[in-house]
Amino acid sequence: NALIKQAGLLKKIIDAIKDLIDEATLDCDNDGIYLQAMDSSHVSLVTFYLKKNLFEKYSCNRNLSLGINMTSIAKILKCGMSDDTLLLETNNPIDILSFKFESRRGHKLSQFQLRLMNLEMERLSIPDTEYSCIIEMMCSEFSKVCHDLATIGDSMTITCTKKNVTFDTTGDLGTGIVSLKQGVVGSENDENVYAASIKIVKPVSLSFSLRYLIYFTKASSLSNKVILHMGEEVPLMVEYKIFNTYEEEAGYLRYFLAPKVNE
């Protein structure tokens, strides 16, 4: 039983993953809702965690695993307005998930029921990793870099040093390189604007498929900033933090992507 103040937030989260994965289970316990799923080619993994404080009201008195088809849940979420409140409920036996949308002024109520699936999902253990470089930058900037370089090549090498982070690609038509300096570059509406904030233990340079990175940038509407976690010989983690309507951190959406290697 979970009440979310703005249905649009859940829609944004589902829209950011529905093209990457077909089906997934929502694992619910008293602390929140967790999802983990790999794409069909087993190159990337998406996880999200929606903490209890993302919801106006939240209760879950026993652990549940709800099998969801992503296209179907996206269709239902599209039926609500983004500033509707949304109440999610399961019944007993647990074979449906019900969605009750209520308009902000309370003049419209709509209810939809999603048939749940029996999914036998493999669960992967994601090891705690000490990343060599953690790069924080504006989502819009990361999205632009990926889209720009994808017009030239199909993979992008991210190289992080103490002073800057560079993104480069090579294709048939030529090459492209974008470099962001470490540090604050100015102020906009009293908020610091970073080129990139870099925490570094050791310089790293890794290559990744731009097709997947572009999928990940669909999460850009969830947060101002994206955090890239890189380490030698480990998958890239691209993290978007999720905030509730009180601007408190209330979960995350994380994508993991295996690197490309030269033979």
């Binding site: 790999m38 080619s41 087993h42 190159v43 990337s44 993994l45 493999e122 669960r123 992967l124 253990s125 994601i126 090891p127 090549g153 199909d154 993979s155 090579t170 290559s207 498929s209 480990v234 998958p235 993991f256 992507l257 295996a258 690197p259 490309k260 290697v261 030269n262 033979e263």
Partner: peptide, 14 residues
């Protein structure tokens, strides 16, 4: 360019 590594080689099935 480059060979795509699969994620399974990093994360183990529990």
């Amino acid at each position: 360019t480059g060979t795509q590594v699969r994620l399974d080689s990093f994360f183990k099935v529990t």
